[in-house]
Amino acid sequence: MNWSIRCVILFYAISTILFPAVSVGQSLSEVADFAEVQYKSENFEVAASEFSRALYFGHSGQDILFLKVANCYFNLKNFEQSIVFYDKAYFASQSDSIKNEAILGKSFSLIVENQWMLALSELMNIENTASDDQKSKMNFLQGIAYFGLHEDELAESSFKKCLNDLPVNVDFQLIEHEFESIRKNEKRFNPKTAWVLSLIVPGSGQFYSKQYKDAANSAILLGGLFYLTVNFATKFSFAEAVLVMLPWFQRYYIGGANKAEKFAIEQQLAMRNNSYQAILELLGTQKFKESKSIQ
């Protein structure tokens, strides 16, 4: 073997013995710190995977880590996963504060998934030792869940309680006014009335629900079908007119009534949403600031 090659091999052998390669891995706390930085910079996808990594390798403070993973999924709008991790945080924790946070997070996730009843049952687990902020949030979530269940009186009282927790005297008139307008609109756009009206005079149900184009459409269509039925009856026979036209007439007659009912429900929901937006506007920080400055 060539001398130069021998020297190179010897050099590598000696340096390997003298200076062993020390692999420097990240410690668990470094992983958690990195995840925390990602979390603060709202890079939730990376934060969730890094927190999960820290959890997998047994980093201390598992309950907080579970809570943070759940918050990451919540912010990523992956509510199914956030519910799972809020549950894990709840069962891993001994602290009431963390348990309450987990319940609030889980309830909010359930609310976003339209699981109103489940959210309410979760909120009942909030401990009495909850902080003022947690109680306020509980009332806020209860208000939304009751609103989703159309339990308007309970929703109203929950939203009022939510405002009651604030250190300023907020006027409840706006909330009362909004819920009053919801009640009025529910009477004004009664789906059953719309349905019956449409059966009596086709199109009138849609007119009642303020869908004027659709009302005209229904009236013209059914008027045309009625004309054709009469035409058939006079030209041929009544039995033939019934056999040929009745299925069509029945189809659009009932269809129109159903549509009128649907429009009334849509109007109710649209009005409910408007009132809900106004209430949340009041609950939002901006309005809170305004009411504070007025004082």
Partner: peptide, 23 residues
């Protein structure tokens, strides 16, 4: 002076809650 207490609901919560009943 009364304590300047922040409202429990963050702006993000309110924004998310606003989307719940949109037709």
């Amino acid at each position: 002076f009364p304590a300047a207490k922040t409202f429990a609901q963050s702006q993000n919560d309110i924004v998310l809650a606003k989307t719940l009943f949109i037709p």
